[in-house]
Write a protein that binds this DNA or RNA. Structure first.
Length: 589
DNA sequence: GTTGTCACTTAGGAGGCGTCTT
DNA sequence: AAGACGCCTCCTAAGTGACAAC
């Protein structure tokens, strides 16, 4: 507390605010104090959930208005040309633009689309257009394809002009003033209208996402700021001054009825601080995780069913980094589950499998309908408990019928202040990265080999967290190309070696250097090939951005003399600026 | 407990864009 | 100059979890 106060005194220009003690902060402030450089993330914290004192911005950028099709682009119904009213035409173009996508062949998508499209039709259109199968959007589709080609074929000057206009928009609307800083806004453009594309088997796919107007928009800014102006002739739904929240703009979306927000970029103070807090929470878990593990193992034996279920669920969350698994409204979203919402049908128990005892086979769809498939040997006691939980149940029954995320989180809260289910994912991801880096990195390796080690450590985390991706469409091709390069390089090396052998004594040294250089290049290519192959179906980005304490990576770079640019690109460096400044080579998560 | 609301983080895919190759 | 390729940015959906009201 005292340290924080001193920092504030050192930055007298800042308005005063009540400080919140944050253990992690002390660790960082000490070194920077020595240099008297006040970093923005050392500034005052507010208490009572106050997020800012001053907030000024220009409001959102709306989607461009609909431009009617030229009259030569026709729509046909049952083979006959039909001129659509502007409202119906706009919605038709949304469908036409997706014609090449698999979505438009799906029954649910077509049904939802047609139902919503009809709502935009005039009564005359409504009575004529009764069958989507008789609608011919092909001219529209061709027209948009041609437009897209034309855009690609634009001259340099035309492209530059568009770029400059985008830049102007960014400069005008892409920043806000929050307290003493100009901050980048993440998503200052309002989502344009279109057809809803849910992930997986979504019951609402194809529904019309309606156009957002100024009248739908709530503005949040400070009273003493210059309020954003609505477009001429329009009004905001509301202007409010709520400094307990971080958003600048909000509106209610019509598919799920949920609220959408415009918020700040990850590089902003408010997001960076939150991110830091998240990792500090995970580090607190590290200190007491042994105790918690001992506790849930004990609870496997409880005479109360609800406690056993809680303990087994927590074991899964800890061991397998499963998500909490909130309940979802049936029929409103795709059928996906997390830990607490697992159903009997998602597990198969094997007394013995591939020479291992007590194996649990998981097979379910998680967030974004990504499949989780895993065969895990578990303790006998867990296995017996699972048998008990599954006894006399139907496949579609809840595995943990006495548990939900709220109960689980209440329990976790008692074990450690601020602990929730998702902290385990952060903790296990970060600790895994640190361990893997320690195991895999050899100081004798050259830079590419070290980076391969880093990526492998990152990969271990991505596998743990089940971060998958569809293999890139060009994957096979790109592997082939790389192999061709490797073969060529091998050839080149062989040549160089031959030359070395036959070279005269005075040329040997030079020839040798040449071979060395080629060898290095070859090695680099081979490392690249290995990395790419191993990464075929794994997405590293999500864990890097959301689960791995960036200070671990920064420290690793410092320790092994790797430039930070090799690990984090520009955006990532901006997001993790706090960590890049904070972490020394001996940082330990 | 249960339900609903709200705020915020986490997620994969599409497509743009810059660079390298031909 | 054109085309291929791979990385990065944008987009927005889909989660988590706090909290209030009943």
């Amino acid at each position: 507390m005292l340290m924080l106060w001193i920092t504030n005194v050192l930055v007298p220009a800042l308005c005063t605010a009540v400080l919140v003690a944050c253990v992690g902060m002390l660790v960082y402030i000490l070194p920077s104090l020595c240099f008297f450089i006040p970093f923005r993330w050392e500034e005052e914290r507010y208490t009572d959930g106050v997020k800012w004192k001053f907030l000024e911005h220009k409001g959102p950028v709306f989607a461009p208005p609909y431009e009617p099709l030229p009259s030569n682009v026709k729509f046909y119904y049952d083979g006959k040309h039909m001129k659509l009213s502007p409202g119906a035409e706009e919605v038709a173009t949304f469908f036409a633009k997706m014609l090449d996508h698999e979505y438009t062949t799906k029954d649910v998508f077509r049904k939802n689309f047609f139902k919503d499209w009809r709502k935009e039709m005039t009564s005359e259109e409504k009575s004529k257009l009764t069958d989507l199968n008789k609608c011919d959007f092909s001219e529209m589709s061709e027209y948009f394809k041609a437009q897209s080609e034309a855009r690609k074929a634009m001259t340099k000057e035309e492209k530059l002009k568009i770029k400059e206009e985008n830049e102007r928009l960014l400069q005008e609307y892409g920043f806000c003033i929050m307290d003493n800083h100009k901050e980048r806004i993440a998503n200052f453009r309002i989502e344009p209208p279109g057809l809803f594309r849910g992930r997986g088997d979504h019951p609402k796919m194809g529904m019309l996402k309606r156009r957002i107007r100024p009248e739908d928009i709530i503005i949040n800014c400070s009273k003493d700021s210059k309020y954003p102006k609505p477009p001429p002739g329009t009004k905001w739904k509301e202007v409010r001054h709520d400094n307990k929240v971080t958003w600048l703009v909000s509106w209610t979306e019509n598919i799920q009825g949920s609220i959408k927000y415009i918020m700040l970029n990850p590089s902003s103070r408010i997001k960076g601080e939150k991110d830091w807090q998240k990792y500090e929470m995970a580090r607190r878990l590290k200190k007491c995780v042994d105790r918690i593990r001992a506790q849930y193992r004990e609870d496997w034996k409880s005479k109360e069913m609800r406690i056993r279920q809680r303990a087994v669920a927590l074991y899964f969350i800890d061991k397998l980094a499963l998500r909490a698994g909130n309940e979802k409204e049936e029929g409103e979203t795709a059928d996906t589950v997390g830990c607490c919402s697992l159903r009997v049908e998602h597990l198969t128990l094997h007394q013995e499998m591939d020479g291992q005892e007590y194996v649990v086979e998981f097979d379910f769809l998680g967030k974004d309908s990504i499949r989780y498939y895993n065969k895990v040997p578990v303790e006998k006691r867990v296995f017996k408990n699972l048998q008990l939980f599954m006894e006399d149940k139907e496949p579609e029954d809840d595995l943990f019928d006495r548990l939900n995320t709220s109960i689980l989180n209440k329990h976790l809260q008692e074990l450690m202040d601020g602990l929730t289910a998702k902290v385990f994912r952060t903790y296990n991801a970060s600790i895994t990265l640190q361990q893997q880096l320690n195991e895999l990195t050899s100081s004798e390796d050259n830079v590419p080999a070290k980076i391969l080690s880093y990526n492998r450590a990152n990969r271990a985390v991505a596998i743990l967290c089940n971060h998958q991706r569809a293999p890139p469409k060009t994957f096979e091709k790109s592997m082939q190309n790389l192999q061709t390069k490797i073969d060529a390089k091998k050839e080149q090396l062989a040549d160089a070696k031959r030359e070395l052998k036959s070279a005269k004594a005075d040329a040997k040294v030079r020839r040798d250097e040449k071979s060395k250089k080629i060898e290095e290049q070859l090695m680099k290519l081979e490392v690249q090939a290995t990395d790419r192959e191993e990464n075929k179906q794994i997405a590293l980005g999500t864990s890097k951005l959301n689960y791995l304490d960036p200070r671990i990576s920064v420290a690793w770079c410092k320790k092994f003399g790797i430039p930070i640019e090799k690990i984090y690109n520009k955006t990532q460096r901006e997001k993790f600026a706090w960590a890049i400044d904070m972490a020394e080579k001996d940082y330990e998560f």
